[in-house]
């Protein structure tokens, strides 16, 4: 009887530990659902397969791109804003090198005794994470480039070779309407500021 109680206590302890170690934003995919709320206008962006040898560790920077260039990630309280397809791997997100809002930085290790590929998928948003971007109270959905005069032009480039860049700007039209715009790989889209 006593041993059964002991076993039950151990099981309960293990379950509690597992619950504590599980990420707060437990999710089904890179775009959630999250307990911390959903990432707005999030789309999964699947990256190219990367080959690893037996028992090998690699550090990679992955970038959101196109009309969804923003990675919210751990620094925005969205742990697990990424997934990978191969159970041979462990992953550690490196928050401190994530110095641009499109960047996901992580260290992956292949623990299997065979060469393996990994495919990483990022949850990418069309809207910048909290605390980033021009001071604009965005209203409505994304619209095309209104073509008005630009100000506050900022280029955001990675410190890598090859570099990965995108540009943000404010556009002010003659009727006083302002737009917060993002350009990435030849695509420009804007949000109207309220």
């Amino acid at each position: 009887m006593r041993s059964m109680l002991l076993r039950a206590r151990r099981l309960l302890g293990a379950l509690l530990l597992a619950a504590l170690l599980a990420p707060a934003g437990a999710m089904a995919g890179p775009c959630g659902p999250y307990t911390t709320g959903n990432i707005p206008d999030c789309e999964p962006q699947q990256q190219a397969p990367v080959p690893y040898g037996i028992l090998e560790t690699q550090g990679w920077a992955y970038y959101c791109t196109g009309d969804h260039p923003y990675f919210w990630g751990l620094s925005s309280s969205y742990p697990g804003d990424f997934t990978w397809d191969n159970s041979c791997f462990s992953a550690i997100e490196n928050v401190f090198p994530e110095t641009t809002p499109n960047k996901f930085d992580a260290t992956f290790t292949n623990w299997c005794l065979s060469a393996e590929n990994i495919v990483v998928t990022l949850g990418c948003s069309s809207q910048p994470p909290p605390g980033f971007g021009p001071s604009c109270n965005e209203t409505g959905g994304p619209v095309g480039d209104p073509g008005c005069p630009q100000s506050n032009i900022s280029n955001h480039c990675s410190s890598t070779n090859p570099p990965v860049c995108f540009q943000t700007a404010t556009e002010t039209c003659s009727d006083g309407t302002t737009y917060s715009c993002t350009a990435d790989q030849g695509i420009v889209w804007c949000y109207k500021c309220g």
Binding site: E56, T57, Q58, A61, Y62, Y63, C64, T160, P162
Partner: peptide, 16 residues
């Protein structure tokens, strides 16, 4: 100029 969305930064072996 290549259009890339992933850049390798580091490589090492797990201590066998």
């Amino acid at each position: 100029p290549p259009r890339v969305t992933a850049v390798m930064k580091q490589r090492s072996g797990v201590p066998s």
